[in-house]
Structure formats: C-alpha cells, structure tokens
C-alpha cells in the first residue's frame, strides 16, 4: 500500500507523541504519585456536622504547638466556617478543607494557597504567613447565586519579633 512520504512522517510523529504521553501518565501515576483523589483524605458529607464524627462539626483553628496551627475549614453555600482566622505572624498553618454541599474553591489572596473543594474530599495545604496583614479568602469556583458573597479573612497579627524587625 502506498503511503505518501509526508503522511508517513506525520504518522511517526503521532505515534511518538502517543508514546511520550503514555510514559508521562505512567510516570505521574506510579512514580510521582499524582492521582485522582483516593480513599485517604475522604470524609462522609452526611456525617460532617455530627459532633464527634468529624473535626468539621466544629470548624476551628487549633494550636498544635507554638507557631504551628491547623485549621479545619468547612465550605458551604455561601460562606467559609470559620470565616475569620487569626494567627500570629511567622506561624505555619495547615488547612484541611472540605465542602458540606457543592463544589467550592478556596483561594487566599497574595499567597499560593489555591484549592478546589469537593464534598466528601479533604483538601490539604500548608503555608507559613510571615508578613502581618489581612489576607482575603475567596471562593473561586462558581457555586451558585450567592457565589460572589462567599469570602473570609485571615488576619496575621504582628508579634513582638515582627514589629521590632520591621
């Protein structure tokens, strides 16, 4: 069967691209561990507000140790709970966020915190707030008619160390 020279070239390029993509997917999946959300880090949305069954029943910020915090944040239409978080400057904080109802997003302005929040799925990110100030938290996944009203704040309070060094 006659195949044009240029068509042969493009067939080879196509096969090469497919092989590269296959290897990239295999590497990402089995080696780098990039995968769709699994069983770990999931929570039953039906039990999420049941006291004792989940930490999101009483969303809060907890001090693990001096300068180290964890925040259990519940996203729901159309607010974050807690809506305001206060931590001292220089603190490391780990966010555990889930949704009670529909898909939401959580973006903390002026930081690289940017998460998609799905019901039943726990999203986790850790960051350190070195600079005092107020950081706005917005939902950046459309979640309904009140989406634009869904926001919160993280207030990073100056400490003696930060005020004397600045």
């Amino acid at each position: 069967m006659h195949v044009d020279k240029y068509e042969q070239v493009w067939i080879r390029i196509s096969i090469f691209v497919l092989v590269v993509f296959t290897l990239a997917v295999l590497t990402a999946t089995v080696s780098a561990g990039i995968q769709v959300p699994g069983v770990e880090g999931r929570v039953d949305p039906n039990l999420i507000t049941t006291p004792g069954a989940s930490p999101w029943a009483a969303p809060s910020v907890r001090e693990l140790a001096p300068g180290k915090y964890e925040a259990y944040v519940l996203a729901q239409i159309w607010r974050f709970d807690p809506g305001e978080i206060r931590i001292p400057a220089g603190s490391e904080i780990t966010f555990y966020v889930t949704s009670k109802d529909v898909q939401h997003g959580l973006k903390i302005m002026d930081t690289n915190i940017n998460m998609m929040i799905l019901p039943g799925q726990v999203s986790k990110l850790k960051t350190t707030f070195n600079n005092p100030g107020t950081y706005d938290v917005v939902c950046h996944e459309y979640c309904g008619i009140g989406h634009h009203t869904m926001y919160g704040q993280i207030i990073v309070e100056a400490t003696a160390d930060t005020t004397t060094t600045e």
């Binding site: 907890r62 001090e63 693990l64 140790a65 300068g67 180290k68 964890e70």
Partner: peptide, 17 residues
C-alpha cells in the same frame, strides 16, 4: 509541658489541650 507540647503537637502533629 512546653517541651512535650513541641514534641507531640509540633512534631507528631497531634492536637491536645
């Protein structure tokens, strides 16, 4: 107490108060 808090809370990420 402070030392234990740093080990258990800060190191093992286990909350208690």
């Amino acid at each position: 107490a402070q030392q234990v808090k740093v080990v258990v809370g800060g190191g093992f990420n286990t909350f208690y108060e």
